[in-house]
Design a protein around this nucleic acid. Structure first.
Lengths: 352, 352
DNA sequence: ATTAAGGTCTTAATTGATTAAGGAGGGTCA
DNA sequence: TGACCCTCCTTAATCAATTAAGACCTTAAT
């Protein structure tokens, strides 16, 4: 069974290919009778309709938005913040009637052709670490690009939040409550799978710009309050999971003196820290305050967190891309908001 | 700035277009010197690399898998079961180095061109209601198709679970515990946005085959146990949200006599029912047993549920599609498993 | 009768690549 | 000297459509 194309149908009916094309795409260009016969024959021959690739080539539009994510997709889908963002992006894509092409980036060094070969009209890049080869590949395509969260690339529109300010807001909250013994648990600083303590130089060398800057916010708030940052225990984990958070929690809470407040850069991690506190029989917020980030999984647990407009960020990125224009403002910084719930309180008496 | 193509570069260097193509795709076909010059000129002219659409047309492969989902994407991403499935599918796509093209289906009656125009090698159809026009559009494309969960289309591979058996297992569990006053809360039966009581005829007329069959499992287990199905209060909700579950819970628990067990067809709904029970000060499982479905959000809440292999289902669907073959078995039925946790127990004394 | 206007279909250029087959030129070996 | 083989590049067919412009015929208005 050879392939059925417009030409096959045209030959069968003794008409030109153009006529058949019109039968599908512009009914007004030919008589209703012929059109019906064409559609009939098409059906008879099992024609699958005008080939979308050829159509796309001719028309110069792909009808899809490329989405690049540094993580494994399975991992990305497990992250509530990412899901919120996807929802926003998907809404924009839906409204515009275009598809969302999710491009996998193999974790190993196996060179990926997926970016090079992606049939898309524009790219949305989310949270790529500094120097990730996929970014170069995206830029080489010379299509419209919007970058979300990180990295910042001059000349390309950026959508995200004011990371240093948001980080500082989280830290300031516990500092203002009177905490002095603060611990930090963060994920997504490096791409190397390391889990364990991170000294300031490793912290500052983080590959992910947004997290690096968020952490900078923690530090500057602490220093403003007169704390010595070098004395702040900092635990880094490789995966954004509740289990990893619990591990970080145990590491931090096992120190002496024990921190009275722990800052985390995701809600999921914060939930894990709460688990660790429960393991140790510590009361939250009585004996320990915990702050999350993103307000993505925080409400039910009563977690104090920084809310960021996930969906709006996704939707804005999508609309920016779909409005064809790289003509708007270069950076769209969305507001963040400290949401105080029941996981933070002043430190136990005599411990401030 | 006109478009830069292979030809532009060829003209500039006085070589043939083929030569330039080889420079990109088959370095062994030309001298290293010329190749370098070509790449240099390409760079100079701002060439974005071989056009993926043209490439795709010539090579006859799109490098992407189309994913069709009846819900709004934003809604799909909010469903833990769907996310698990996505993770599996994404893993398969990732391994094969192809993208995942998520196709939106406009909710209104605005005819969608997205399926017709999707540049993909195969389609994965998930949970479409009977007679949904998108299914016809997918089949018209004559590409490999795998259908997940519903609807069953003879001649096309199907991946899912044994719905009637799984539904029956859930029902039998509470029946065997001794419950006689059972209530049911279900979502995803119809596409019409209805929330409220559903009589048996509406139940049986459900547009979504999988849910219809799952419900059939509830019914047959109840009838086996000698219950009159017409007497089983059945509340249907339009959205799979915790809030909707709570609403259903209140409706069911407001009846007299009050049910001692509630079956739900998603964990999210079950969580909402638990909320309703808490609102009413009912003890679970002492005064009320609740069963979820999917084991997607059940563990932390201690919910008894039916586990289905979400990720494996997704991964299998993906591999089936990517192995190019419609040659395997026609139906792949994955096992389900009753997971008993702490939301079910025998009914209060004297109420069985 | 002449001109214009419609309606219906065809011609042919265009979209941007890939790749089998072939040719030119040079080197090696008998 | 010719046969043979390389290497490097070109020719030309191919993938499957879209669409402006033109050809041809019929009908209507002047």
């Amino acid at each position: 069974m050879a392939r059925v194309t417009l030409q096959t149908i045209a030959d069968r009916l003794g008409v030109s290919r153009a006529t058949v094309s019109y039968a599908f795409s512009r009914p007004d260009q030919l008589s209703e009778g012929l059109r019906q016969r064409i559609l009939e024959v098409a059906d008879e021959l099992g024609y699958a309709g005008p080939n979308p690739t050829a159509r796309s080539l001719r028309l110069g539009r792909a009808g899809a938005l490329g989405l690049i994510f540094s993580e494994t997709l399975a991992y990305a889908f497990a992250d509530p913040y990412a899901i919120g963002f996807f929802q926003g992006l998907a809404t924009a894509a839906e409204d515009a009637g275009v598809g969302l092409l999710i491009l996998p980036l193999p974790h190993g060094d196996r060179r990926s052709e997926t970016v090079r070969d992606a049939v898309v009209d524009a790219f949305c890049v989310v949270s790529l670490p500094d120097g990730h080869p996929a970014l170069a590949e995206v830029l080489a395509r010379k299509l419209p690009v919007v970058i979300v969260d990180e990295p910042y690339v001059p000349g390309h529109p950026f959508v995200g939040i004011d990371e240093p300010a948001a980080g500082a807001a989280a830290a300031r909250h516990v500092l203002e409550l009177g905490h002095r013994r603060i611990g930090v648990a963060m994920v997504g600083l490096h791409d190397d799978g390391h889990t364990g303590w991170a000294d300031p130089s490793r912290q500052e060398g983080a590959a992910f710009e947004a997290m690096r800057r968020r952490r900078g916010g923690y530090q500057s708030a602490c220093e403003e309050a007169g704390l010595d940052w070098a004395g702040v225990p900092f635990y880094e984990v490789a995966r954004n999971s509740r289990e990893a958070g619990r591990k970080a929690g145990h590491a931090l809470l096992g120190r002496s003196p024990r921190p009275t407040a722990i800052l985390t850069n995701t809600d999921v991690l914060a939930l894990g820290v709460l688990d660790a506190a429960a393991d140790l029989g510590l009361e939250v917020p009585g004996e320990l305050s915990v702050v999350g980030f993103s307000d993505s999984a925080a409400e039910e647990a009563g977690l104090t967190t920084i809310r960021q407009a996930k969906q709006e960020i996704g939707e804005t990125a999508g609309r920016l891309l779909l409005s064809g224009g790289t003509t708007g403002p270069e950076r769209l910084i969305f507001p963040h908001e400290l949401i105080v719930r029941s996981s933070t309180a002043p430190p136990p008496a005599g411990q401030a």
